[in-house]
C-alpha cells in the first residue's frame, strides 16, 4: 500500500487553486482564439479580444482572471492501493482550499444560504469521489463561478421526449440564460442516472478538454446540433449580439430508470478555469 501524507495533498490543492486563478488553460485559450476568428459581430470581436487581453494581464501580473474565483469543485479518483496518512482526504482537500484562497488573495465566496454570512475561507469545497485500480490519487479542480452556475437547470424528462426533447431543453435553457452567464459559455450536459447523478454528470462533462471529441458518436452528433442551435440564438460574447455564444457542448450519459430521463445542464463561463494533478 502506497502512503501519501495529507500535507502533500493540501499543498498540491493549494497550488492547483492559485495557478488556476491566474492562468487560463490552453484549451480555453484556444477556444476563445477560435471564437475571435469566427465571430462576425464587431462588438463581439471586441469583447473576445478584451477577454484574451485580460488573460495576458492576469498571467503577467499574477492577478485573478475573474473576481469570482468560484466555489472550489473537485473530482477525485482514488486508486485502491493508496492510503492517506494524517488528515482524511476530505479534510486535506479543504485545508488546501483554505490555504489556496487565502495565500492566493482569492475571493471567499461561500456563505450560509439563509443568513448569507460569509464562511470566510471558501470552504467547504465540493468534492466528488471515484475509485479505481492503481496507487495514485488524481485531483481535478475547477473554480466554478456563481453567475454561470445560476443559469444551470435540471429537468426530469419523459422518455418519450427523446433526443429532440433534450436538444430543445438545452437550447431553451441557454436562450433564457442570454447574457447572464458570461458568454461565450461551455455547456455540460448530463443525461441519465437519476436526479442528483445527472447533475454530477453535467458538471463532470465540463472537465473534458474543450472540443476534445466525444467518443460516443451519437452524443457527438447531439453536441454538434446543440452547438449550432445555441450559436444561432444570436446572444454572442457577453450578450451584445454575435454568433459565438458557446465554445463547446459536452455530453455524458449513464443508464437511468426505465420510467425516467433525467437531464441536467451545467453552464460554465468563458473564464473556464480547470486543472488537474496526479499524486
Amino acid at each position: 500500500m502506497r502512503i501519501i501524507k495529507s500535507e502533500e495533498i493540501s499543498n498540491a490543492v493549494k497550488n492547483l487553486i492559485i495557478h488556476s486563478s491566474i492562468n487560463l488553460p490552453e484549451d480555453t485559450h484556444n477556444g476563445l482564439k477560435a471564437a475571435f476568428e469566427r465571430e462576425i459581430s464587431e462588438q463581439g470581436k471586441t469583447v473576445l479580444s478584451k477577454i484574451l487581453l485580460n488573460a495576458e494581464i492576469a498571467k503577467n501580473e499574477s492577478k485573478p482572471l475573474c473576481q469570482d474565483t468560484g466555489l472550489a469543485v473537485f473530482f477525485v479518483e482514488i486508486g485502491k492501493e493508496v492510503s492517506v496518512e494524517g488528515k482524511n482526504l476530505t479534510e486535506a482537500i479543504n485545508e488546501g482550499t483554505r490555504l489556496g484562497y487565502s495565500e492566493g488573495y482569492l475571493r471567499k465566496s461561500t456563505c450560509d444560504p439563509i443568513s448569507r454570512k460569509n464562511v470566510g475561507d471558501n470552504t467547504p469545497a465540493i468534492i466528488h469521489y471515484e475509485f479505481n485500480d492503481g496507487e495514485k490519487i488524481k485531483i481535478m479542480y475547477a473554480a466554478k463561478g456563481g453567475g454561470s452556475e445560476n443559469m444551470s437547470a435540471l429537468k426530469m424528462m419523459r422518455p418519450s421526449d427523446g433526443k429532440e426533447g433534450i436538444i430543445d431543453f438545452a437550447v431553451e435553457t441557454m436562450r433564457s440564460a442570454g447574457p447572464n452567464p458570461c458568454p461565450p459559455n461551455i455547456v455540460g450536459i448530463g443525461i441519465g442516472g437519476n436526479f442528483e447523478r445527472s447533475a454530477i454528470l453535467a458538471k463532470k462533462s465540463l472537465f473534458r478538454k474543450l472540443n476534445e471529441p466525444n467518443v460516443d458518436t451519437e452524443l457527438a452528433e447531439m453536441e454538434k446540433i446543440i452547438f449550432e442551435k445555441i450559436n444561432n440564438i444570436g446572444t454572442g460574447p457577453m450578450g451584445f449580439g454575435g454568433i459565438c455564444t458557446v465554445l463547446g457542448v459536452h455530453i455524458t450519459k449513464e443508464p437511468c430508470h426505465i420510467a425516467s430521463m433525467p437531464v441536467a445542464l451545467n453552464v460554465e463561463c468563458h473564464s473556464h478555469r480547470h486543472s488537474e494533478i496526479i499524486l
Binding site: G44, G178, E228, N232, G234, T235, G236, G239, G241, I243
Partner: peptide
C-alpha cells in the same frame, strides 16, 4: 436594450 437588439441582429447568422 442592447441584449434584445444584438440578439435580433445575429439570430440564425451562425449557420
Amino acid at each position: 436594450d442592447l441584449y434584445e437588439e444584438g440578439r435580433e441582429k445575429y439570430k440564425n447568422k451562425y449557420s
